[in-house]
Design a protein around this nucleic acid. Structure first.
Lengths: 224, 224
DNA sequence: ATCACATTATCGATAATCAATAATTTTTCG
DNA sequence: CGAAAAATTATTGATTATCGATAATGTGAT
């Protein structure tokens, strides 16, 4: 039993690995990695037997995934990987832009003069793009934006932003074509400069525009 | 058993009343109504026995409440009603303002010339305020803002906004003092006028300012 | 072909049970 | 007495087995 619980690095302190969390993590990985495709059914007992757990634990994990909108379920019809529509993705990108713009306003204070860690992420993005490692690329893009939003110091803002993670991450897997590294570099460079100067207003605007570049529709909500 | 399932209005169509949902609804009501105070423990078997359900169903309901951030839990230490800090509430109000501003930009198109339903809600708010019925007042305030956000036509935006419901609703129960009806009326009247004219830009700005009036801290994120 | 009916897979839910852990109480001993 | 140690209790985390309800599928009769 407990085929999942095998992993636990040697240097890991006392990580509580509840069965429920392990299941959730495993399923999340599989969904984000594309092992389970959108629309695929997730059958409780099947998963339970595969992972060596009980049906109840799987149910709980599925409820959590449903809450974070990775899956959806109908009564007596089971749970399946959620299908994110193009429309919803556009909306999510709009919102991400809006939130990041707001985040930048205050985050700029934190980054003024020290954008080293951010620059590292951008470098990593470009390196990954050259090699063609989309997973790595997406991870560093995520890390960059998350760092900015996190630096805003607004926990609620961060939570809202993170709740968009699924919608804005599927994009990569849909393969809307490779990104021009030059364009990306230029865009990020401008943002970095603004942050370094502590100019949150400009950084925010640039981040919002950046978000717009990756969503194929005009941004209707721009208040400026 | 199933002491909860009694209710089901005569005109109700075919409402699926899963046990889990019933538990969730019951607990949500009790939390919002203040029957359970912030910090109170929610003991699984206790609730299960009281409602005549199994422990498992209560667990699932609690996981859902945790996802919507009404409660929080630590391993082996149980689940309790979440305590929303003043800081978090301020952040939530900031975010609510940001989202509503964005919503107004597009919602204005939908309301141009026909703000009747919105005006009704404002009237209801003032009426409730006169009578001193805070519950009713809060409900209509909620309905007004929700209508605006809903009219934006952006589902993701609506979802984000609704996820702030808890944080921005506790406020009423904390009783930050009664609100001056005149001030409220004037504020809403200006918003209505802007929406009626289809001027989303102005309506958005007013909504954001409105939100600021109810949060006791200067709004740092205003990009305009 | 299509409708009615049976079959099957799966979900929704329950009960009974057990180990692990946290909180509480009691005991022991300096 | 008062603090450390030990025992007790309450509750969670998780399992197994089981049942009825429901949706999907298959099958046969007309």
């Amino acid at each position: 039993m407990l085929g999942i619980l095998t992993l636990r690095g040697p240097s890991m302190p006392v990580q509580k690995a509840s069965v429920r969390d392990q299941i959730r993590r495993t399923l999340t990985e599989r969904i984000l990695a594309g092992h389970y495709q959108p629309g695929d059914r997730l059958i409780e007992l099947q998963i339970a037997r595969e992972l060596g757990t009980s049906q109840g634990s799987v149910r709980e994990a599925l409820r959590e995934l449903e809450a974070s909108r990775l899956v959806e379920s109908e009564p007596h019809r089971g749970t399946r990987v959620r299908v994110v529509s193009l429309c919803e993705m556009r909306e999510a990108y709009q919102m991400r832009g809006l939130l990041e713009q707001a985040a930048a306003i205050t985050a700029a204070k934190a980054f003024k003069g020290s954008v080293g860690s951010l620059r590292d992420e951008v470098q990593a993005v470009l390196r990954a793009a050259e090699v063609g490692d989309f997973g790595e690329q997406a991870a560093h893009v995520y890390a960059f934006h998350r760092a900015v939003v996190g630096a805003s110091g607004n926990g609620v803002l961060l939570r809202l932003w993170e709740s968009l993670a699924f919608e804005t991450r599927v994009r990569v897997r849909l393969g809307w074509g490779p990104i021009d590294p030059k364009q990306v570099a230029a865009s990020y460079e401008a943002i970095l400069t603004a942050l370094e100067e502590g100019n949150g207003r400009v950084a925010g605007r640039l981040l919002r525009e950046h978000s717009g570049k990756f969503a194929p529709v005009s941004d209707q909500l721009d208040a400026d």
